[in-house]
Amino acid sequence: MSSPKPPPPAPGSLSDLTRSILSLVILIHFCCVFVVLASGFRRSPMLNRLVGIFAPYTQGLALDPGTIRYYHTLGREEDDDAILLVDLYPDSESPLAGQTLIKTVSLPADESRWLESRRRYLSLAKIIQVNSPEGGESDPEQQDRDARAAEVAKAVGRGIIVENKLESGKFPRAVVRCVRRMSQPQNLTELNAGFPPDPTAAAYDITLYTADVWIDEDGQTVIVKRAARNEQAPLQGSTSSS
């Protein structure tokens, strides 16, 4: 006795086997996607492990949003805008004392506020902003955060130095600053003393991070982070790269 024959597939439809394979692929794909989306903001150890397992697929195809700030703001200090300012001085081999500022490069500068290019520079500054000192020397994660901030400052400093090579063929010396601009309260009557109504006034700018960057005679980039109260001290010994 034979079982009834299944009806033929409609034109344009897929065979049972193809549908089964595609169903399996869809399930696996969305399993990976849901895990990385569910761990976009904070990750439990389990999710962290799963994200690591799926990473070749999800990171390779940029499906993992990682630390991208889809919340836009949470009203914290670190959600305030920050920019990078690079001061250039003529002599890379001498201390800054007595040198005249050539110019200050702002990142971002005057890019359109409607385009992504401006936001990319704000993202660069944000890396330094969120890694700038908070916990002091007692914070066990501070060294790692310092290293991340220094990595960005060094790369930005070197890039701007090379971009502004002097006519004499020498490289200038740079001071990289990350400046956070505090946001105003919604109610202006809550403004603290010394803060004018103009939200772009200098009083709202706080320098979070400052580092001296120069290219030495061997072509290596040297960065020395400035400590609080303008004391200069190497972070972990000066770092260098070609």
């Binding site: 919340y71 703001t73 009203g75 959600d79 305030d80 805008d81 601009r181 946001s183």
Partner: peptide, 27 residues
């Protein structure tokens, strides 16, 4: 995911998030 990320902070609960965005003079 975007909604759950917003639930972590106060700004999206107390209605202040839009003001925080408006107050960012650089972005």
């Amino acid at each position: 995911m975007t909604a759950l990320a917003k639930t972590y902070g106060d700004a999206w609960w107390d209605g202040a998030a839009v003001w925080h965005l408006i107050a960012q003079t650089q972005s």
